[in-house]
Design a protein around this nucleic acid. Structure first.
Lengths: 224, 224
DNA sequence: AGAATAATTTAGGATAACCTAAATATATTA
DNA sequence: TAATATATTTAGGTTATCCTAAATTATTCT
């Protein structure tokens, strides 16, 4: 057994995982902004993580970083913890949609494998968390999905909301008010190229016009 | 608001709370043994904790330490977290008696007040944890009790087991096998001054002879 | 291409905890 | 009471993580 990773390192790996989901390397600055520290500190840590045996990240000066296999494993483990915890805080303790993120962020680093297994079992081994984010399997495989950003719709499509990628409590409450929660059916009516606004109708509600700051956080599955 | 205490400081405070429960100061060596670190490290930390504003401990060279009011508050808060967590891991996640301690030790430092309130409510605001340890109230008052050590019995008393003060999983399983769990009724039959062995009969079981290494961990309430 | 701007790294320090080894203080015993 | 044993503290060092300020490298613009 290698020694367990510190909480901080786990947070770095999570951040790199998220920033590299588009295929590009995670830049020092972007990581610093995400973690709320200075770029200088990030450089130091990346050098260290890349020098570990086995390395957790692949890193070259001025080129940003991405996860090495071992780092990705660790990132998925933390992600699984986080998302199971969110699901379970809502299911078992009655937390609200917008309050679980912070609590899960603290708990994700300290729960044991037994804890992880028990809550997964209680919840019936869910594949998505309450915000629709995919939960890696116990074997740390990320489930495949056909999620597409709501901001990519151009009108005249029907779709089902699958995921809300957002940690801001205010925005989450707003989305709940709009009915934009996982499972909601909607029709995209009109797209305005100038401001990237999308007019859409959630089934059972009046049409609304929504800006890219919101549509860029919502994933849907398009219905044929 | 003063800044939150580190996990380590919380562990020091818990240890001091426990070691001073007999009224005496907690010695440097005893703390070191309890925390699994060297006495030298303890000295450094005690000096720091006593120098804080407000001080968390009262400490004088070579005299050991005890908790200052602010330190006691913090210790009771952590203790409440720990004991509520143990109760709730057993109730809600099906953990066994002997497995909860470690998990609770990690979680106790990171859960929010909201989490604490929610599990207290789910559990019906219990006054004791599954091992019978008293749980401080939300206002951080330790409930009164009439617990007496089983090792203080001298035969011909009837008593009810109220608490098992033990974190060792092996011993806990042994006690469960003997029926020595909170709520069990027993009669002390005979005491041997030479080896401090106590012969006792748990209701519905055969009499057993138990040594002081065990009776010193069990609290009972004597029945008239 | 050269200059200005932005991103990144290096260098030098800080803090919180821990450690070991040596020094000192207290307690016990002959 | 002196000698021994035990407990405690001091001194100096380590590791993990962060910081600021200065130096360097990369990118963009004219």
């Amino acid at each position: 057994m290698t020694k367990p990773l510190t909480q901080n390192i786990q947070d770095y790996l999570k951040a790199i995982y998220s920033l590299t989901s588009d295929g590009k390397e995670a830049s020092t600055t972007a990581l610093a902004a995400r973690l709320g520290i200075t770029p200088a500190s990030v450089t130091g840590m990346l050098q260290k993580l890349a020098a570990l045996q086995p390395p957790l990240v692949v890193y070259q000066k001025h080129q940003g970083a991405r996860l090495a296999p071992e780092g990705e494993r660790a990132a998925l483990e933390v992600l699984r913890h986080h998302r199971l915890l969110e699901a379970w805080l809502i299911e078992s303790l009655g937390y609200s949609w917008d309050a679980v993120h912070e609590e899960a962020c603290k708990l994700e680093h300290v729960i044991s494998e037994e804890f992880e297994e028990r809550i997964a079992a209680v919840l019936g081994n869910p594949v998505r968390d309450p915000h629709g984010a995919p939960i890696p399997s116990a074997a740390l495989v990320m489930p495949t999905n056909h999620d597409v950003l709501l901001s990519s719709l151009r009108g005249r499509e029907k779709a089902v909301v699958r995921r809300v990628r957002c940690e801001d409590a205010h925005l989450l409450r707003h989305l709940e008010n709009l009915g934009l929660v996982p499972g909601a059916e909607l029709a995209a009516l009109k797209y305005s190229a100038f401001d990237a606004n999308l007019t859409l109708k959630v089934t059972g509600r009046k049409p609304v016009v929504i800006g890219p700051a919101i549509t860029g956080h919502i994933f849907v599955e398009i219905q044929d």
